[in-house]
Design a binder for these strands. Sequence first.
DNA 1: AAATTGTTTACCTTTTTGGTAAACAATTTA
DNA 2: TAAATTGTTTACCAAAAAGGTAAACAATTT
Lengths: 141, 141
Amino acid sequence: MSIFHINRKTDYAVRVIVALARHPLGTRLSAKLLQEETLVPQAFLNRIIAQLSQGNLIESFPGPRGGLQLARSAEEITLRDIVEIMEGPILLSECLKEKETCPLAEACPIRNRWGGLQSTITQALDQTTMSQLVSELSSLS
Amino acid sequence: MSIFHINRKTDYAVRVIVALARHPLGTRLSAKLLQEETLVPQAFLNRIIAQLSQGNLIESFPGPRGGLQLARSAEEITLRDIVEIMEGPILLSECLKEKETCPLAEACPIRNRWGGLQSTITQALDQTTMSQLVSELSSLS
DNA sequence: AAATTGTTTACCTTTTTGGTAAACAATTTA
DNA sequence: TAAATTGTTTACCAAAAAGGTAAACAATTT
């Protein structure tokens, strides 16, 4: 699509977390209700929910009176948490993995630049919490 | 692979521009020589060179005594120039295109965050010039 | 036991990535 | 002007990722 693009799956996951974060911690919402709020296709949403659950960002309870709830408070969930659970670690270039050896390693002028940009991105994502998003949301409506 | 990942094609393109930028403006290098310096597969490199040429970042001259040269000085070529020629405009989310309409547009708390991060990234790329990379390279060797 | 809710697995289509190869076009020089 | 040299274009390809569907499965409550 385009470089530095957020995948739809991750975008959807943010919608899910924000929908949950709008309610008091401990509130359980069903997958069906989350579907109505996020507009994500149900079958796809199921897998996103499962991934968020495996990543310990949400907790799930089967059966009647079950549902999904945040695993911790909205202040303690950042955009980076969600991005990394859905996409894996942020890595601008293979050469930023210590173990990797690049044929140009001896004379690579770009590696440190990618490293710096990667730090900038991860810091920006770290600084955005779900409670910030929720308060922006209420100021919109 | 991983989110916020620089594609190999773009990484290769940076190698090409840096290789050219190490010589005085106006110096022509052949595609064959560039292949030896960048280690990019020849057939793939040909297409990368063509794309850089179409993007007016380099100039090409066919025939004997021909070759490739930078279209402007290394101080005037930024990482963003290369990234956008190889990958198209930087766009974190579809919803950042003015014309796009998102079903959540009325109540979307994340759009401005993606917009801010996108600005941060493009500014960082704007601030890196090829002459900076070349001088870092000489300080390495 | 039945109803309700989340989980897992398998499968699918389209697009992107990374690459190869050969024909083609332009320019210089013998 | 023909041959040699150099870049350009096009067609093709395999593997992976993106985005999604659907059905069987497991757990819990009533």
